[in-house]
């Protein structure tokens, strides 16, 4: 076990840890905001599907000797669009279609990479390696998070309307498809970057956990958004610290922190619900009585 002070040399800090911190915070930020939309729209499966597609593409790209990011991001964006259309059109078999599509992409990718004998090289994308992110990756994640912040600031009201009631939004003339596409594209980029960090296996839970925890704690859409971001970033920082202290995998540590936050919120929520329920019953009885007077 390394003592924290031993590994925290100035060089280590500036070359490895600082980029990891910046990229990690940026990706946690994006995934938690997008996660709220995905969970509320009941398409959290899309995050999982995209990570499969992303991993498959990455395998092929490495096998072919292409630049991994430049190939993977466009393909995952296209996949996001296709998955969105699949869940839109085929009403009954939406998630089945997503599962079929994404696992097929994964299988083809793994086949390609095993043919090229490169399996060892790509397997670290399975679990992520935040401490080995390149300068380009870090810049990309910062750009991405600026885009996500801008989109959510400018279109906040519309995103709320589309998430709450798609049909109503469409009926009142909102371009629902555009906003869905916007969310899908941002999700795609976030998933690819997150895959580098957390690994393909864990990225979808990075999107879902903070959102679900925030929903247990908050009652307004705006506060759910803010809480989700705060929880996500704090859990990332704690997870990173944990992994530095105990030399554990970063992705798994961050998810463990998220799990801890979720459990705490659940217990807290259950206790509060019991209390609120009692109060509400009293209140309802009172209003019922006054209405009937």
């Amino acid at each position: 076990m390394n003592a924290l002070s031993e590994i925290l040399t100035p060089e280590y800090w500036s070359v490895i840890l600082l980029p990891a911190l910046i990229a990690g915070i940026a990706v946690s930020f994006c995934s938690s905001l997008l996660g709220v939309s995905l969970v509320l729209k009941r398409c959290s499966m899309i995050g999982d599907g995209l990570s499969h597609v992303g991993y498959g593409t990455l395998c092929i790209a490495v096998a072919m000797g292409w630049a991994p990011m430049q190939v993977t991001i466009p393909i995952v964006i296209v996949a996001a669009y296709i998955l969105l259309r699949l869940s839109e059109t085929s009403r009954v078999q939406g998630d089945t279609a997503i599962a079929l599509f994404s696992t097929s992409a994964l299988a083809i990718g793994i086949l390609a990479s095993s043919k090229a004998n490169l399996t060892t090289d790509v397997s670290h994308y399975m679990f992520g390696s935040i401490l080995a992110m390149s300068r380009g990756d870090v810049i990309l994640s910062v750009v991405l998070s600026i885009c996500v912040i801008l989109v959510y600031l400018l279109f906040y009201d519309k995103i709320f309307a589309v998430t709450f009631d798609e049909n109503f939004a469409r009926a009142t003339g909102l371009n629902v498809r555009f906003y869905n596409l916007l969310i899908a594209v941002l999700t795609a980029v976030t998933v690819v970057l997150g895959m580098m960090m957390m690994g393909a296996l864990l990225i979808s839970s990075l999107m879902i956990f903070p959102a679900v925890t925030a929903m247990k704690l908050c009652k307004r859409f705006r506060s759910v958004m803010i809480a989700s971001v705060v929880i996500s970033v704090v859990c990332f920082l704690c997870g990173l610290l944990l992994s530095l202290c105990w030399d554990t995998a970063v992705g798994a540590s961050v998810i463990a922190m998220n799990l801890l936050a979720f459990t705490t919120a659940s217990v807290n929520g259950a206790l509060r619900n019991a209390r609120v329920k009692r109060l509400q019953e009293q209140e309802q009885e009172e209003t019922w009585q006054t209405e009937n007077c």
């Binding site: 509320l40 009201d157 309307a161 009631d165 939004a169 009926a171 009142t172 909102l174 307004r220 759910v224």
Partner: peptide
Amino acid sequence: YLPQQTQIQRNFPASVQEVVLSGCL
């Protein structure tokens, strides 16, 4: 438009004001 209510909406974290305002879009 007042839609046939879905289960999704029933569990949505939003304040009444946020929901009503979304009609103004």
